[in-house]
């Protein structure tokens, strides 16, 4: 994972609420065994249904931030959803709220789920709809987005996760470094369940 630096990007508006992971990437694309190449499947059914759908427009490829409606990413645990968004070229999604599992999955892959209040959201949505070339700047370290009018808005971010993202490291290292504590826990609370041998 690359460390996340401050970046500026264009916005793409997708005003629907409750966009579920089956829309982001339908299940028939989950038969892959790696993470690459899923960008083409992003919102594929919405793109097939409507030639004018925003992701079919040339501006989509120029955009780096999706501005979507409330409760983005509800539904399944498929990490293919952030993989597809990243594969298409998005670095962040802005909404008023995200579903829990999607938010976790996004952060694990360096896709920023940015939560803003209702008013800022409306402002960004209008901006994105009116001016395809408008850019905003995302500063993860400061936890701010800066709008073209110069206004900076802060967004919430878990402090621990933020450090991981700024350094470009994932959690496996942190967890494997806890090996002693894990071994101690296992000694004290072994638990009786053994899944082996499996039954025929």
């Amino acid at each position: 994972m690359q460390p996340i630096k401050t970046f500026a990007a264009r916005l793409l508006p997708l005003p629907s609420e409750n966009i579920d992971t089956d829309q982001i990437i339908p299940a028939r694309y989950l038969k892959v065994t790696d993470k690459a190449g899923l960008g083409d499947a992003l919102f594929t059914d919405w793109r097939a249904r409507d030639p004018n759908f925003i992701l079919n427009q040339p501006r989509a490829k120029e955009a780096g931030i999706l501005v979507a409606g409330d409760n983005f990413g509800c539904g399944s645990s498929r990490e293919h959803a952030p993989w597809a968004l990243l594969g298409f070229g998005f670095k962040a999604v802005i909404s008023t709220s995200f579903a829990d599992i999607f938010r976790n999955n996004a952060l694990k892959n360096g896709l920023l789920p940015i939560v803003v209040d209702e008013a800022t959201h409306q402002q960004l949505m209008s901006l994105a709809e009116e001016d395809p070339s408008a850019q905003i700047t995302v500063d993860l370290a400061a936890q701010t987005i800066t709008l073209p009018d110069g206004r900076a808005v802060t967004f919430p971010m878990d402090g621990f996760v933020k450090q991981m993202l700024l350094q470009g490291v994932d959690e496996v290292g942190y967890l494997t470094a806890k090996a002693d504590a894990i071994a101690q826990y296992e000694q004290a609370h072994g638990g009786t369940l053994r899944t082996q041998p499996s039954l025929s």
């Binding site: 645990s77 498929r78 990490e79 599992i101 976790n104 999955n105 694990k108 959690e171």
Partner: peptide, 10 residues
């Protein structure tokens, strides 16, 4: 609870 593939690896 459900987890994503990164967490499956963890």
């Amino acid at each position: 609870f459900g987890i994503g593939t990164s967490e499956v690896e963890h």
